[in-house]
Amino acid sequence: MDRARVTDALGPLALIAIGIAFAAGAWLNLDLGTLRRLGPGALPLGLGLILATLGSIALVQGLTQHAERVPRPDFHALAAVGAAIATFAILTERVGVLPAVFGTVLTMTTVIGDLPWLGRLALALSVAIGIWLVFLLGLRLPIRAIGAG
């Protein structure tokens, strides 16, 4: 079997795994109840089994019909967005939202790398000011602007 087919099969396989995981979790840890009084585990068990079934059908379809190549992920973009959101989460906890916003924009534009340094700093600063004006002053969201939460 060629590589494209194997990669393509990973999607349906993940669905089967998720379906079985939910069904097993419901079966083992939750009360299924009776037909008349369904317990908290009844629906997840059924839904999980159906998801696994659908995943299997999709798997067979993918293997028997003409394969469609799964495109190569854009790791550069993934890194940019991942780093940006991680920066926000980490910095907000330690230094507050506004410095975190500044850091997020700076990180993301640096990883993408198509703005000059001055442009990155200017953008980061103006976004932080904009967020402060709109969300903290305007909408009065109860967020700590600067300083550890």
């Binding site: 967005v81 940006a84 959101i85 926000f88 989460a89 907000t92 906890e93 939202v97 975190a100 916003v101 997020t104 924009v105 993301m108 534009t109 993408i112 198509d114 703005l115 953008l123 980061a124 976004v127 967020i131 969300f135 969201l141 109860p142 967020i143 939460g149």
Partner: peptide, 26 residues
């Protein structure tokens, strides 16, 4: 190049402002 960082920040702020929980951001 200018648009997407702004969108990313708006997403983070929006999610965080829900209940000031960084777990939601992750």
């Amino acid at each position: 190049a200018m648009l997407y960082p702004i969108v990313a920040v708006l997403i983070c702020i929006g999610v965080y402002s829900l209940r000031l929980n960084l777990f939601d951001v992750w």
